[in-house]
């Protein structure tokens, strides 16, 4: 009787295991399907852009200004504008974001003020970008009178990606084992010495990833830039940052009017002539390439820096 009940139990167990395996399989299929759906959509869009835009990717495409004639139109003012805006964004957002992250993780006392700050930062990371554009329009353009310039755009995008950078920095710092800090303090290191010699170097790969992903988001943003009034037709470049007369440096470019890649693409897609759609596709390819290169750089840096860390 006991043997029959045990065999009954094994049989029941077997069917149970089979049932669970089936669920496992179902889940795997769903997972693969979800993955493929995302990847295929991306691939389709990318290939479509490639087919449409490939022919326009001549060197002249990068060295010509926009034009009403599709065959002569290029993205010179757009990519220079995007680059200049990114320089401003990076200069403002990276030090501010990283410093805030370090302060919040390592220095800030735990009480309700820091809690409020923390909740706000996490919320800000999810605020739609157009809201940042409206804020910047009121604050930078009208209150501070910074005009519709590269400086305004750079600051706006810096605000936009600041939460991303702070959150990224904090995640990176949190992944460092507590024992490292304790070890440093045990040897008599001050708080700053601990941060400088241990926390920062060890979390650098993670911080850089956050920074570059933030920058990659900024470069593709259109809504806030349109809100602050980026221009659509610009056939000249900002003044060069290096001049031939002392003091050799010029910051006039900060105040220059500008356009950026997403706006150029937006403008071309809304044209009646179909030839401009090819230009838009080509410019789209360049923008995707720019983001991919930035993301690739993030991966490379993370890999390189991680190799140097030995606990």
């Amino acid at each position: 009787m006991s043997s029959s009940s045990s065999s009954l139990q094994t049989a029941r167990l077997r069917t149970e295991i089979k049932r669970r395996r089936r669920w496992d399989l179902v889940f795997i299929v769903i997972g693969i399907f979800a993955l493929l759906l995302g990847l295929m959509t991306l691939a389709t869009l990318f290939i479509d852009m490639l087919i449409d835009g490939w022919e326009r990717l001549h060197p002249e495409f990068f060295t010509s200004f926009p034009s009403r004639r599709a065959a002569h139109a290029g993205i010179l003012s757009a990519w220079v504008g995007s680059l200049a805006v990114m320089v401003v964004t990076g200069t403002v957002a990276i030090p501010l974001g990283v410093a805030t992250g370090i302060w919040l993780e390592e220095y800030a006392p735990r009480h309700w003020v820091t809690n409020v700050i923390e909740i706000n930062i996490n919320n800000l990371a999810g605020v739609p970008s157009i809201i940042f554009g409206l804020l910047a329009l009121g604050l930078f353009v009208y209150s501070f009178n910074l005009g519709q310039s590269i400086r305004t755009a750079g600051l706006t995008l810096a605000l936009l990606i600041l939460p991303v950078m702070i959150v990224g920095t904090r995640e990176a710092i949190r992944s460092i084992p507590q024992s490292i800090r304790e070890g440093a303090y045990a040897l008599g290191a001050t708080r700053w010495q601990t941060v400088q010699h241990h926390i920062l170097p060890y979390s650098l790969p993670g911080i850089l990833t956050g920074v570059i992903i933030g920058m990659a988001r900024a470069i593709g943003e259109t809504a806030p830039i349109i809100t602050i009034g980026a221009l659509t037709f610009i056939a000249f470049l900002p003044p060069p940052p290096i001049t031939d007369a002392p003091p050799f440096l010029s910051f006039e470019w900060l105040e220059a009017p500008f356009t950026v890649m997403p706006i150029q693409i937006f403008n071309w897609t809304s044209r009646p002539e179909s030839a401009f759609q090819h230009n838009a596709a080509a410019a789209g390819l360049v923008l995707v390439a720019m983001t991919l290169i930035m993301n690739g750089l993030a991966i490379l840096l993370r890999y390189r820096l991680r190799k140097n860390i030995k606990w």
């Binding site: 060295t63 220079v80 060069p240 940052p241 290096i242």
Partner: peptide
């Protein structure tokens, strides 16, 4: 650096 930014200027000096 100058040659790198040469492409960035069409009008030199005068605003």
């Amino acid at each position: 650096a100058l040659s790198g930014f040469a492409g960035m200027s069409l009008v030199h000096g005068v605003q």
